[in-house]
C-alpha cells in the first residue's frame, strides 16, 4: 500500500514530463543493389518517462508491455527478418538501460531491403508479406529513391489527442552511403557529405506530420 501510494505521488509528475524519441535509418548501398542496413530506435531522452510508465499496467488505455513482452515481440520481428529471402547477417541489440534498440542486416537487393522495412509497419502489408516500396534503385541510371507509402498526416489524425505530444517531439534521421559519389539529391533539406558519398536528412515528426518536410528523396549517383 505504501509502495503504491509513493508511486502514485511520483508518477503523476513524471508522466507529464515531455518525451521524445529518434529513429535512425542507415543504408550502405553497393553498386549492384546489395548492401547493409542499420535501424535504430533511440528512446534515451525519454528514459525517465519510460521508467515511470513501466511501473504502470496501462497508460491512455494502452497496455504497458513488460520487458519480457517487449523482448518477445522484438525477437519475433527479428525471426521474421531472418526468414526473409535475401537477408543475411542479422544482428540486434536491446539496451533497456538507455532504451536503445537496433537491428542490422545485409540485403542482397533492394526488394529484400523493402521487405525488412515493411516488417516495421503495423499494417496489413507487413502481415501479408507484401513488400512496400520504400526504396528503389535503378542500377543502369544510378538513381536511388527513398519513398514513403503512407499519408502521415492521415495516420496522425487517427492518434488520440493525448498521445500526439509523444509523436510531436520525435524525429527521424536517414543516412545513405554509396560507393559512387552523389551527383545530386532532390530533397533540398538533405546534406551531402564532403566526399559526396554519404547523405543525411533529419526531419522532425512534427514537420513530417504537417508535411512541411519529407524523408522522400531521389539521389542520382555519378
Amino acid at each position: 500500500m505504501i509502495k503504491k501510494s509513493i508511486y502514485i505521488c511520483c508518477l503523476g509528475l513524471l508522466i507529464i514530463c515531455s518525451s521524445c524519441f529518434e529513429i535512425i535509418e542507415e543504408v550502405s548501398l553497393n553498386d549492384d543493389g546489395s548492401g547493409h542496413v542499420n535501424l535504430t530506435l533511440n528512446l534515451s531522452r525519454s528514459k525517465t518517462k519510460i521508467n515511470s510508465l513501466r511501473l504502470l499496467d496501462s497508460i491512455n488505455d494502452y497496455k504497458v508491455p513488460t520487458e519480457t513482452e517487449f523482448k518477445k515481440e522484438f525477437e519475433e520481428m527479428v525471426r521474421q527478418v531472418k526468414a526473409t529471402a535475401g537477408i543475411v547477417a542479422v544482428s540486434y541489440d536491446m539496451n533497456f538501460d538507455d532504451y536503445i534498440f537496433t537491428l542490422s542486416c545485409d540485403f542482397s537487393d533492394i526488394d529484400a531491403l523493402n521487405k525488412v522495412i515493411t516488417k516495421f509497419n503495423p499494417d496489413k502489408a507487413a502481415s501479408n508479406g507484401v513488400a512496400q516500396k520504400h526504396f528503389s534503385f535503378d542500377r543502369s541510371n544510378k538513381v536511388f529513391k527513398r519513398d514513403y507509402p503512407y499519408d502521415v498526416a492521415k495516420e496522425f489524425n487517427k492518434v488520440k489527442m493525448e498521445d500526439r505530444e509523444v509523436l510531436e517531439n520525435a524525429s527521424m534521421t536517414t543516412i545513405y552511403r554509396f560507393l559512387s559519389p552523389i551527383k545530386s539529391a532532390k530533397n533540398a533539406q538533405a546534406k551531402i557529405s564532403g566526399s559526396r558519398k554519404a547523405i543525411m536528412l533529419k526531419v522532425s515528426a512534427k514537420d513530417l506530420i504537417s508535411q512541411q518536410k519529407s524523408i522522400k528523396n531521389q539521389i542520382i549517383l555519378q
Binding site: 542507415e26 533511440n42 534515451s44 531522452r45 525517465t48 543516412i175 558519398k197 554519404a198 543525411m200
Partner: peptide, 15 residues
C-alpha cells in the same frame, strides 16, 4: 539534470 544518449555525426555522417 538527467543524462541521455544520442548520436553525433562527423563530416562523413559516421555516427
Amino acid at each position: 539534470e538527467v543524462a541521455y544518449v544520442t548520436y553525433e555525426y562527423d563530416e562523413e555522417y559516421n555516427e
